[in-house]
Nucleic acid binder design. Sequence first.
DNA 1: AACCGGATTGAACATACGTGCAAGGAGCCG
DNA 2: CGGCTCCTTGCACGTATGTTCAATCCGGTT
Lengths: 324, 324
Amino acid sequence: MTFEIDPVQSDRSRDALTAAHLYYMQDLTMDAIAQELHTSRSSVSRLLSHAREIGLVDIQIKSPLDAPSHLEQQIEARFQITAHVVPVPDSASDVDRLERVALSVARILGQYFDSNMTMGIAWGSTMNAISRHVTPKQTHNSQIVQLNGAGNMRTTGLGYASEILGRFGTAFGAHVQQFPVPAFFDNPDTKQALWRERSISRLIDMQAIMDIALFGLGSPFSGVMSRVYAGGYLEQAEFDSLSAAGVVGDVATVFYRADGSADGIALNERSTGPDFTVLRRTPRRICVVAGRSKLASLRGALAAHLITDLFVDESTARALVEAN
Amino acid sequence: MTFEIDPVQSDRSRDALTAAHLYYMQDLTMDAIAQELHTSRSSVSRLLSHAREIGLVDIQIKSPLDAPSHLEQQIEARFQITAHVVPVPDSASDVDRLERVALSVARILGQYFDSNMTMGIAWGSTMNAISRHVTPKQTHNSQIVQLNGAGNMRTTGLGYASEILGRFGTAFGAHVQQFPVPAFFDNPDTKQALWRERSISRLIDMQAIMDIALFGLGSPFSGVMSRVYAGGYLEQAEFDSLSAAGVVGDVATVFYRADGSADGIALNERSTGPDFTVLRRTPRRICVVAGRSKLASLRGALAAHLITDLFVDESTARALVEAN
DNA sequence: AACCGGATTGAACATACGTGCAAGGAGCCG
DNA sequence: CGGCTCCTTGCACGTATGTTCAATCCGGTT
């Protein structure tokens, strides 16, 4: 059985490419394009949508280099990272905020990820939002690796996490490596044992050499509970112990304090997320934050040097640099 | 006297940047953006136009790598160059053809030209058309060099050529080096003498080290006369001598035959355009051709290996590969 | 051949967008 | 201060684009 390119699909995409040329490079109207392609204007509209969807059209916004917003400059100077402040009106709800930051990230991600790369991806509401909008870009020999398990008392989490991962994988034409373990083990020994299994250690090894990590932040003790705390991953007792340990947030279900430290936090021993010492070896660590409720968590993650590239909504960014 | 950035201009561009983000990255409608920026929808429309004009927005069409059009593949295989076939319906007039090819080139040129580069530019109807559409891109320490003089019996040609050059210079923020000589000297000795002048040799030296050359083709003996033949640059006798010598075209007023040879063409001794042996040292030599009347000229230029990157309209491309 | 989804198409409708125009505002000079 | 020009703004209009819907086409099945 040979695999042939679906001629219809190919036809469609070739037309989409032509249409894109005519529309974006030659400024023809859709009407004019319709005539050249011997079809209706509405079909051209659809062709162009298709072209954008499959990533034939790439739209970039280029800051004139000298004009990263004042906020971005401040953040970069203070924390030694690259900052992208997403403009969102102060009146926007947290849901809007997340959606809009996620959309921006989704659009720009292709500029970071390329062929022969490995990208580690977490799960959670932030990652979910991003995944629903990733702009496709064809890559070869690239990998998407799940950063931490998603199973809990109720489900294996495979559906949810794999949906997210899958969307990234499809968009980039990358292999997807699932991580079929719970978010937290009940017993640290189980983790140790499993980590020695070749099927699992293979994955851990991939995490160790990934080029990009992409993650949101958990913020256990602020208004909006992130999925980890609402989804049945943690018992009340565990939650309390985090509180007692002074935890302010987590990255891929690994917890940290306000000063960035993570030592002696018991739950981390049972977490399946990458140890921070490992994570910090990843050259590019992209963190996506939306909403002021994650401010404390963000400060902690910055203190822990978990972030090299930050995407954040405008008002959270402002809060970050204002109150010291 | 200090130069300060015009605060109004800066305001405007900052808003344009924000608007571009909101429009292209977050898919807001102009109405929504107007609200966020506290202005009217029409102003947003204008802001976005402005943003595109000054090159804040960069739209690229990416062939899925595996799908350069059949024509492009054929041309690339046969002539060992990179080909860009611009889709133009067969019914289009030659003027349309030129306009549309030029627009495509103008849009894509920024991908080739960058900071610290030197680009040589010819003049003529093709270059004129391109210049009217170049998409701005900020570069530093870059140079635009005029390839050949534009003076003739009637004018110094400075106005015409410098207008073209100037548009490129402005778009890229590059220094423009004019070439204040006629297209052809009456006497070869004058050329030799002038070439030894430091003011001129400086320019010749720059041509020798340019990174990109951008030019159209002249086609003396086909339907549409290119500017060189219509604009009073050549006497009838000179024209006849070209015909007798078997000339099929020129690049920057340097002539060649169908087989690509240029030896013994008397007029070349008096031409101010770069010698082909010099031109061929330029790493990237972009040729723009629109209209089948230039086919013979194109064949000659290809035979002479003057081209590394070709932009051509579809039907001319088809003709190029068809009739052998 | 008849039948049945599912996908694709163009017409019609609903939005969104670009632009001419008149009104208003900021600078400049008399 | 008035008068002038030049630039910017929002409105209103016409055009361009997105989307719904009914009709049609297509491939597979009975």
